[in-house]
């Protein structure tokens, strides 16, 4: 474990917590007897969260952590895997099933056919992998899928007029975690002999590059202290 990977995991955890906070806000808001102004805005405007991206991430974790009960690495590793699995599936459940949260989900805008991401990633994992076994192919699939899982969310943000802070912070933290992982891979490459994993590295690089334009607009909005807006 090195500082870059720990920072990356904490950033990833933060992104999940921000999303859960946002869902809690929507839930508690609608529970009020009087429609406060914030509540009214929250419930009327779409949450800006892409269910498609959340479903892709649940699939990423489900295929990434197949070995959670077979290969014990550390308590930290197991706990974090359980947190990511539990949070990603519960977020999908909230947006799909929860009577209040689902109202803030704008399915007409979140139209990305994520099936078009799943299939190519699966085919690619069957062709390019480190070992042609069931677990290894699915693990490789989860790396390819995670690299593109943010696309439905980024496209939804372009369509969303006013991106609220929590959603913007969620996407930022999600992008930052993989950028920190790249630093972790560089660190491990120079400190551990034989630590070479091209598939992981290239997938992580592609994933981070997909956030490049979002990072640009995110930092610009911070610098100019204006509302985050992605060009359509």
């Amino acid at each position: 474990m090195n500082i870059f990977r720990l920072a990356g995991d904490m950033t990833h955890l933060m992104s999940v917590l921000v999303l859960l906070l946002k869902i809690h806000t929507i839930k508690s808001c609608a529970g009020k007897s009087y429609p406060c102004s914030l509540c009214f805005i929250l419930l009327e405007s779409s949450s800006g969260i892409s269910l498609k991206t959340q479903e892709l991430y649940a699939l990423v974790f489900a295929t990434r952590y197949l070995d959670i009960f077979t290969d014990f690495i550390s308590v930290y590793n197991t706990i974090m895997k359980l947190i990511f699995l539990g949070s990603s599936f519960s977020i999908v459940w909230y947006i799909r099933r929860h009577k209040i949260v689902r109202r803030s989900y704008d399915k007409d805008q979140d139209t990305f056919r994520h099936f078009f991401l799943v299939l190519p990633c699966l085919l690619l994992a069957l062709i390019i992998n480190e070992k042609f076994t069931f677990k290894e192919v699915l693990w490789t699939f989860s790396l390819y899928l995670e690299a593109v899982a943010i696309l439905p969310q980024l496209i939804l943000l372009q369509r969303t007029r006013n991106i609220d802070n929590l959603t913007g912070q969620y996407v930022f933290l999600l992008g930052a975690y993989r950028a920190l992982y790249i630093l972790n891979w560089i660190y491990r490459y120079f400190t551990e002999p034989h630590y070479v994993h091209w598939i992981t590295w290239i997938s992580g690089l592609v994933q981070t590059l997909l956030y490049a334009d979002f990072f640009y607009y995110y930092f610009s909005s911070l610098k100019n202290n204006v509302k985050l807006k992605l060009p359509a």
């Binding site: 990434r64 070995d67 290969d71 690495i73 990511f84 480190e130 972790n184 994993h197 992981t200």
Partner: peptide
């Protein structure tokens, strides 16, 4: 090289 080392990450 054991590719298990890649599996110790999340």
């Amino acid at each position: 090289p054991s590719n298990e080392s890649a599996k110790d990450e999340l």
